[in-house]
Design a protein around this nucleic acid. Sequence first.
DNA 1: GATCGCGATAGAAAAACCCTATCCGCTCGC
DNA 2: GCGAGCGGATAGGGTTTTTCTATCGCGATC
Lengths: 297, 297
Amino acid sequence: MIDKLELLLALAKERHFGRAAESCGVTQPTMSTSLKQLEEILGVMLVQRGSRFQGFTPEGERTLDWARRIVGDVRSMRQEIKTLKDGLSGEIRIAAIPTVLGMVAALTTPFRARHPDVRFRIVSCTSAEVLGLLENLEVDAGLTYIENEPLGKVRSVPLYHETYRLLTSPDGLFGDRDQVTWREVGQVPLCLLTPDMQNRRIIDRALKAVGTEAQPTLTSNSIIVLYTHVKTGRWASVMPAKLAETLGFSEAVRSIPIVDPLVSYSIGLVVPPREPLTPLIAALVQVAREVAPTLEA
Amino acid sequence: MIDKLELLLALAKERHFGRAAESCGVTQPTMSTSLKQLEEILGVMLVQRGSRFQGFTPEGERTLDWARRIVGDVRSMRQEIKTLKDGLSGEIRIAAIPTVLGMVAALTTPFRARHPDVRFRIVSCTSAEVLGLLENLEVDAGLTYIENEPLGKVRSVPLYHETYRLLTSPDGLFGDRDQVTWREVGQVPLCLLTPDMQNRRIIDRALKAVGTEAQPTLTSNSIIVLYTHVKTGRWASVMPAKLAETLGFSEAVRSIPIVDPLVSYSIGLVVPPREPLTPLIAALVQVAREVAPTLEA
DNA sequence: GATCGCGATAGAAAAACCCTATCCGCTCGC
DNA sequence: GCGAGCGGATAGGGTTTTTCTATCGCGATC
């Protein structure tokens, strides 16, 4: 039963019988028959049948919700019992948006100092994907924006506020300033994230609010790409202050606060709304609460 | 996996391998091996092993909590999907304390008018047992006191307030009064519920508060026994007003309000705190909310 | 209209499951 | 202190269930 629910979840993720089966370590016929059995048990069609996968029926969607919950609880149970036996151990999977990648260490380092048997897996993705991965039990926690754009069903722990800096060489446009306005930023050719990233949308929104828009000379979904370009001193960018700090640029780059208005968004840890949390996630929330004050400083 | 969790729940209920196995329709060896498998899966001992059942280990207790939740969710899922297919149908099991038994019809009748395919099973028990049965998924809802004595983890829907009447023949002690005090009630020989019933404890408490105590001439855990005795006109009792009304006594019995102080306790529907409720229970809660105002009148 | 990708189906091998029968240890009564 | 009886564990075998390989059939695509 549980296994069949797991197969259903895999199918929802892959939307393809063969790949879903493979991701669960079974063959495609097993996938087919198992789902058919699940449909028989529940007495309803769950999958739209055609020559290929065509999505779920409404009953299938409801069953998916239950499956996520039940499978999640079974995993939580197993982990909790394991923790009772071995102490905190295992792996925590965290999905993080690119602009917080530099801050992940602020969470993982104190955590690991306290719980050395715990491993981490960090995946970088967009803020929308964070929520999807969390929902589908593919990660245990997320690091993302916690106030703008609807969060869906999660619990969140605030970590810090993101403010923005113009990174540019001292002899570039506005390179001699102590602060610049968003309107002025609009005049600078920038390296920016691609528009599917929320950070980019935030910047676009800030610029639009003052009646201008970005002039991207380079866009990427990778912070590393932006970083290496800016570091040359020949490209400018707008980045969260924390990120700029963490990355540490050479003297060829100045980090200039952007004001008027001061744009600020909350970043936080998001975890499933389930009660009780798994011991690993509970411990992570605990550490997040503890380090949050030190991050704002 | 699910089956093994069900077996674990049965063992917790029966505290005896053989009987637990039988209640699940399997043999005792199956019970033994299944539990051993569960222990292997989780990597910990769950049951205190000796020559006979000696309770659960701490890990076993935690696993039990999870099992209740997971098994409950699986049942909810199956019921919800069934409802999507067939509409509301199936059975609702309600545990009720004796003094509300007469009021159950006030809930079931409007419910069945709306959902004719739903059957009911009503079990009578003490208020403590109501919560145990609810916790162990042995009933779907309870009808009991909702404010005094800790309720544990349930959601409750208030239905009405219980006040108390002295039932006695017109020519019995205080039989000519329009109201009596609790102190006076203490002087009357009464038919009462046994002390394991909360209603009895409420009465005892009320009497003790005015410095007297009950003089039971007959005690029973059955309302029918009390009813038939009082009906003869030769025995007196203290009963909730609603119950006395519902039962309907002959003219040989007067129902006299007891005052000074006016003792009143809330009766309500209690359901598991799980979200979402099963469709059946959600519908029951709905009906309870609707009929509650009419009950207080 | 041939080809290819996707999922369903058939049949056999493997695994899991559950039963009967029996054993072992503890408790209680005499 | 010893036999009886209860409670649970274990052994062995038959049956069901599961899962695999191989293959089919349907649609979409080029």
